[in-house]
Every structure is written in C-alpha cells, then in structure tokens.
Nucleic acid binder design. Structure first.
Length: 134
DNA sequence: GCCAACGTTGGC
DNA sequence: GCCAACGTTGGC
C-alpha cells in the first residue's frame, strides 16, 4: 500500500464536493510527473486531500477505488485518471504552516515540488499528518 | 488579485 | 534539439 497527496483548489473541486459525490474521477492532470504517480496508484492506496490557494490545508483522507485508465476529458492518450472516494474527514485541518513547521514533514514532496498536483508521501509522513489531524 | 516559479508548446 | 513565449499554479 502506498500513500499519496493530491492538491485541489477548493473553488474548483473541494473535499465537500467529494463527500457529496461519494467518489470522483481524478482527471485533468496534464503534468508528466503527476501522471506517472497516477499510474503507480493501486486500488486501496490512501490519499491525503489537500486544499490549495484559498484554504491551504490538508482536510481529509481519500482512497483509490479504481486504478489508472484513460482520461476521458481529453482525446490525448497520454493522460490518465484514477477514481477516488472520500474516506474520512480530518477532525482538525492540517495547515500548510503546520506542515512547514513540523520536523517530520520537512522533506515532504508537497513543499519540495510545490507545483505538482499529485505527490507521493512516505508512510511516516502520512501517519504524521493523520496524527496532527486528530 | 498579483506575481514568481515552472512546465509546456511551438517556431526555428 | 533549443529556447522564447506563453499559460497555469499556488502562496501571499
């Protein structure tokens, strides 16, 4: 089992939208590195859901329910999507500020490659975030 | 809302 | 194959 973090602008698609939809197709990714990570995702992998721009916090845990398949939002065969499902909201959101300040999260890919919308997490990073979330 | 950083595109 | 131009992202 692997651990991931996905970023989304909550004004475009938020955790609340995912909860309402139960599950969603995570598509529209147009970055090769992010695409490669999508392809590595396995059913059952856990995903931290992070709000960028207007919220700047990790807000919940989702789970991969379908492994990569062609992105139906484009005819370009290079791009893929996965399906994920809301699993559990964080009791306390974990803010970017908190993430930046935490020694166990100092190497997190979220900070290292701030423009990637899909990044892998180590198990320790995942557990640390979940602990901070309550 | 702005702007720096960065990835992608397209002309050469 | 290079690189300037362009578009997008994300933190502030």
């Amino acid at each position: 089992m692997k651990f991931w973090l996905v970023k989304t602008d909550p004004e475009t698609y938020s955790w609340e939208d995912l909860v309402k939809d139960k599950k969603t197709s995570w598509d529209g990714v147009r970055n090769y590195q992010a695409r490669n990570y999508l392809q590595e995702m396995k059913k059952g992998d856990q995903v931290i859901f992070y709000h960028s721009r207007s919220d700047l916090a990790a807000v919940g845990i989702a789970r991969i329910t379908r492994e990569s398949y062609p992105d139906t939002t484009t005819d370009d065969p290079r791009w893929v999507a996965v399906e994920l499902q809301a699993e559990k909201p964080f009791r306390n959101k974990v803010s970017l500020e908190e993430i930046k300040g935490h020694p166990k999260l100092s190497d997190i890919a979220l900070l290292k490659q701030s423009r990637l919308s899909v990044v892998p997490l180590t198990e320790l990073e995942f557990k640390t975030l979940v602990t901070l979330a309550g």
